[in-house]
C-alpha cells in the first residue's frame, strides 16, 4: 500500500494533464484572487507602473538628462546619459522588488498549502482519481504562476512605460523578470516544504524569510570564514552557503543584467534550483506517505 514517487516521464506528462483537468491549478488562482494580500500586491505593482507613467517627467537634451520631475517635484540628477539614468532607476527598482516584493509575494501565497492540507479539505482532494504528487504539484505551480504573473506584470509594465518615455529599451530589465521568478520559486518551495510538514503557514514563511535574511551574510563567506577559529567552523559555514538558496546572488545578478555587466549566475542559480528540487522531493515523499 506504499505510494510510489513520480517518474520523469510522469512529470513530463503532468503539464498536459493540468491542461486537461485544471481544477486545483485554477482553484489556486481563484483563491489568490480572493486573497486580499494578492490584490494588495497587484495594486502596489499598478501604482508603481502608474506613477512612472503619469507622474515621472524626463527632461532630455541631446541624449543627456537635464532634469527629472516626479509628482511635480524636481529631482536633481547628475549629468547622466538617459541610458545610464534609466538603468540606475531600473536597478534600484529591481533591488526593491527582489527584497520587499519577494517578501510580500511569499506572504501572499504562504497560506496556500496549509489551507489545502487542513482536515476536511484534504480528504476531499485525496479521494479523487488523482495521485498525491499531482495534487501538490498543481498547487505549487498554481501559486508560482500567480506570482510569475505578478512579477511579469510589474517588470514588463515598468519596462514598457520607461521605454516609452525615455526611448531606452533595456532588455536586461525585461529579462530580469526571469531571475525575480527564480528567486520566488526557490523560496516558495521552502514555504511548501515547511508548511506541509508542520501544517503551519507561519513556520513556512519564517523559514523562507530566514533564508532570505541570511543569504547576504552567507554570500560574504569568503570574507567571513577566515575569522573563524577552526577549520571545522569554516567548513560548516561554507557548506551551508553551498547548500541553501542564493537569494542575494540572484538579486545581485538582476542588477548586473540590467546594467549590462557579466551575469555570472550559473552556479548560484544551479545550486538554488537543486535546493528547490530537494524541497520538492522531500515534500512529495512526505505528502505521499502522510496519513490524513
Amino acid at each position: 500500500m506504499t505510494p510510489t514517487t513520480p517518474t520523469l516521464a510522469e512529470l513530463a506528462l503532468f503539464a498536459a494533464k493540468i491542461a486537461m483537468r485544471p481544477g486545483i491549478f485554477i482553484d489556486t488562482f481563484q483563491e489568490s484572487f480572493r486573497n486580499k494580500m494578492f490584490w494588495f500586491f497587484f495594486v502596489a505593482s499598478s501604482l508603481v507602473i502608474g506613477s512612472i507613467a503619469l507622474a515621472l517627467n524626463l527632461d532630455v537634451v541631446n541624449g543627456v538628462m537635464r532634469g527629472v520631475t516626479f509628482l511635480g517635484n524636481e529631482i536633481r540628477v547628475r549629468a547622466f546619459t538617459v541610458k545610464q539614468w534609466v538603468e540606475t532607476l531600473q536597478a534600484g527598482l529591481a533591488m526593491l522588488i527582489g527584497t520587499i516584493g519577494l517578501c510580500l509575494a511569499l506572504l501572499a501565497t504562504s497560506t496556500l498549502f496549509t489551507q489545502m492540507v487542513q482536515k476536511g479539505s484534504i480528504d476531499l482532494l485525496l479521494c479523487r482519481p488523482l495521485s498525491r504528487w499531482r495534487v501538490m504539484t498543481a498547487r505549487f505551480l498554481g501559486g508560482a504562476s500567480i506570482m510569475a504573473f505578478n512579477a511579469a506584470y510589474l517588470f514588463l509594465g515598468v519596462w514598457f512605460v520607461l521605454g516609452a518615455k525615455s526611448r531606452v529599451w533595456n532588455q536586461g530589465f525585461a529579462f530580469s523578470t526571469a531571475l525575480a521568478i527564480l528567486g520566488f520559486v526557490v523560496l516558495f518551495s521552502v514555504v511548501m516544504m515547511v508548511s506541509v510538514i508542520t501544517e503551519n503557514a507561519a513556520a513556512g514563511l519564517l523559514a523562507a524569510y530566514a533564508l532570505l535574511m541570511f543569504s547576504p551574510i552567507l554570500a560574504q563567506h569568503e570574507r567571513i570564514t577566515p575569522a573563524f577559529s577552526t577549520e571545522l567552523y569554516r567548513w560548516i559555514f561554507r557548506s551551508v552557503y553551498w547548500v541553501v538558496p542564493k537569494s542575494a546572488e540572484t538579486i545581485g545578478a538582476m542588477r548586473r543584467l540590467i546594467t549590462d555587466r557579466p551575469l555570472e549566475i550559473g552556479w548560484a542559480a544551479g545550486t538554488s534550483l537543486v535546493f528547490a528540487l530537494g524541497c520538492y522531493v522531500v515534500t512529495m515523499v512526505y505528502f505521499m506517505r502522510k496519513d490524513y
Binding site: 500500500m1 482553484d27 481563484q30 483563491e31 484572487f33 480572493r34 489551507q115 487542513q118 482536515k119 476536511g120 479539505s121 480528504d123 476531499l124 479521494c127 479523487r128 482519481p129 488523482l130 495521485s131
Partner: peptide, 22 residues
C-alpha cells in the same frame, strides 16, 4: 492502487471544509 476507480466513488467526509472563496 489503480486510482481510476475513484472516478466511480463519492465521499462525504466528517466535517467537510470547502474553499471559502467558492
Amino acid at each position: 492502487r489503480d486510482r481510476s476507480v475513484f472516478s466511480r466513488v463519492g465521499y462525504l467526509p466528517e466535517n467537510p471544509r470547502f474553499p471559502l472563496h467558492l
